[in-house]
Computed example of a mutant assay.
Amino acid sequence: MTKYIALFLLFLLSACSSDGDKTKTRTDEPIYTLIFLDKTRSVNVNNAFVARKYQQALNEIIEQNIRHKGDKLEVYFIHENTSKARALTITTRTDMEDVSAASATDREAAETEFDLALSREKAQIRQRVFQQLGAQNAGASNQETDIWASLPVIAKANESGATVNVYYLSDMIESVKGPTRRNFQVKPPKDNAQADEWAKADAGQLKRYTIGSPTITMILPFEPNASVKQNNPAVTQYWQTLFSDLGAGTVEEQ
C-alpha cells in the first residue's frame, strides 16, 4: 500500500512540474499588441471622462503586455483609411540575462536590474502611446469610421506566430458609405437579433482575413449613464458576433 501511495505522489509531483513548465513556456512567448485609436469626429479624447478612461486603459495594456525582449506594440488610427494609418511601432528591447547557473544573490541582482530597465522602457512606451492618444485629426479622414479595415492588420499580426492581443479604443460606430458596407450612424441594428444577423452575413465576406484567435477588447468612450442612443448595445453585439465568427478567442467590452 505504501508503495502505491509513493508512486501516486511521484505522479502528482511530475504533473505539477509539467504544468509549471507549460505555464513558463506560455509566459515566455512574445505578445503582439495592437491598439486601434478612434480618430473620427464621434470620439472626443479631450473629454475628461474619456481621457481618464483611455489613459488608465493604456497604462494597463502596457503593463500587461510589455514583459520582455521581443514583445511588440503597434498603434493604428481608426478613420477613413484605418489599414494604412499605423502611427507607432515598438519592439521591447529589455532582456533578462541567463541566470540559470548563477548564485541566488546574483540571480536576485539580475532580476532587479531587469525590472528597473523594463520599468524605464515601459515609461518611454507609455509616453509615446499617450502622444498618439492626444493627436488630433482635423482632416477629411475623420468623417468615416472603417473598423473592418482593422482586420487585415490583425491578420498580418497573426502571421508572426506571437500571441495577439487587440484593443479598440473606439465607440465602434462603423460608418462607411457604400451598398456593401455598414453605416451605423445612419442605420444601426435595431436589436441584438438583427445585429447577429448582420454580423453573420458580413463574416462571410470577411473570412478572407485569417485573424487567428486573438483576444479582442473594445474599450468604449461612454459614461455609465449614457443613453441607448449613445451606447447602443446592439452595436457591440454586432462586433461580439462578428469577431467570434471570424475566430477570435475572446471578445470583451469595457
Rank of each mutant, 00 (worst) to 15 (best):
M1D: 15
A6L: 09
A6Y: 01
F8C: 14
F8A: 15
L10H: 13
L12D: 01
L13S: 14
A15L: 09
A15C: 10
C16N: 05
S18Q: 04
S18H: 09
D19G: 07
D21M: 10
K22F: 12
K24P: 00
T25F: 13
T25D: 12
T27D: 12
E29H: 11
I31L: 08
F36M: 13
K39H: 15
S42F: 15
N44F: 06
N44P: 05
A48L: 01
F49N: 07
R52F: 00
Q55A: 10
N59Y: 12
Q64G: 01
N65M: 08
N65F: 03
R67W: 02
D71K: 03
N81I: 14
N81A: 10
A85P: 01
I90L: 10
T91P: 11
V99P: 01
A102W: 10
A102D: 11
A102V: 11
A104F: 03
T105L: 08
A110P: 08
E111M: 06
E111F: 06
E111P: 04
E111D: 04
T112E: 04
T112V: 03
T112A: 00
F114I: 07
D115T: 12
L118V: 05
L118H: 00
S119D: 01
I125Q: 05
G134D: 00
A138N: 15
G139D: 15
A140E: 05
S141W: 11
Q143S: 14
D146F: 12
V153P: 07
A155M: 00
N158H: 15
E159G: 12
S160Q: 08
N165W: 01
V166G: 07
L169Y: 01
M172N: 04
I173M: 14
E174L: 10
S175H: 12
K177P: 00
G178L: 05
R182G: 06
N183Q: 11
D191Q: 09
A193E: 15
A195S: 11
D196C: 07
D196R: 15
W198E: 14
A199E: 08
G204S: 05
Q205F: 06
Y209H: 10
I216N: 04
I216H: 08
P221N: 07
F222W: 09
F222N: 07
S227Y: 08
N232S: 15
Q237K: 14
Q240C: 03
F243H: 06
F243V: 06
D245M: 15
V251S: 08
E252G: 00
E253Q: 10
